[in-house]
């Protein structure tokens, strides 16, 4: 992080917020490429399912048999757990924390760092082995990592263009949000 877009004034009681550049914008073609890499991983490793999770704990893309898995809770916990374990590792002087493995009774979990705080989580069972999952996951992480790097590079060049543009009109979405809240909280 550390480079920001300046936005214009947006009215009363609101400050001039500069937007952290490191938001991920994923467009169709790159999303499909990420997804097909995950599909390939599942085919080649015989893993049950895999989820790509961003550093804020949101699922980016997933594939496989996800029945019975609460994807959002899973992603939030994996991101926090991975970050916490990385901190623990650094406390004992391990800087390059890349993978995390949990062996369960029927399901095993394998987490692999991708890039920029993004983690690839793979769930597998007895049909396959840790060795195979490890190798295939590492390859997949490399492939996805280069797609993510493309996304960030594009964001960077876009933002340097955007900065010279005049500030655009900010659409009034206040009304939409009011309605949504009314619907959500039933009043």
């Amino acid at each position: 992080m550390g480079r920001f877009l300046k936005l214009g004034e947006n009215g009363n009681n609101e400050r001039n917020i500069s937007l952290p550049m490191e938001r991920i914008r994923i467009y169709g073609e790159r999303f499909e490429r990420i997804k097909s890499n995950i599909d390939k991983l599942l085919q080649e490793s015989d893993a049950k399912c895999a989820i790509l999770i961003d550093k804020a704990g949101a699922p980016v893309a997933y594939s496989g048999d996800l029945s019975g898995i609460d994807i959002e809770s899973f992603s939030a916990l994996v991101a926090a757990n991975f970050a916490a374990t990385a901190e623990i590792a650094s406390l004992v002087g391990e800087q390059d924390f890349e993978t995390l493995y949990h062996q369960g009774e029927t399901h095993n979990l394998y987490f692999q760092f991708v890039t920029k705080g993004i983690v690839l989580a793979v769930i597998f069972d007895r049909r396959t082995s840790l060795g195979l999952v490890r190798i295939k996951t590492e390859n997949t992480a490399k492939a996805i990592s280069s797609i993510i790097d493309e996304i960030f590079k594009q964001a960077e060049s876009e933002s340097s263009n955007v900065e010279v543009e005049p500030h655009r009109e900010i659409p009034d979405i206040t009304h939409d949000i009011e309605q949504d809240f009314d619907r959500l909280f039933g009043n």
């Binding site: 938001r23 991920i24 914008r25 994923i26 467009y27 790159r30 999303f31 961003d54 804020a56």
Partner: peptide
């Protein structure tokens, strides 16, 4: 860091 997925037309926000 909002995740904006144009392919799935989704925005994820963290508060």
């Amino acid at each position: 860091m909002a995740l904006i997925n144009y392919a799935k037309r989704e925005i994820n926000l963290k508060i």
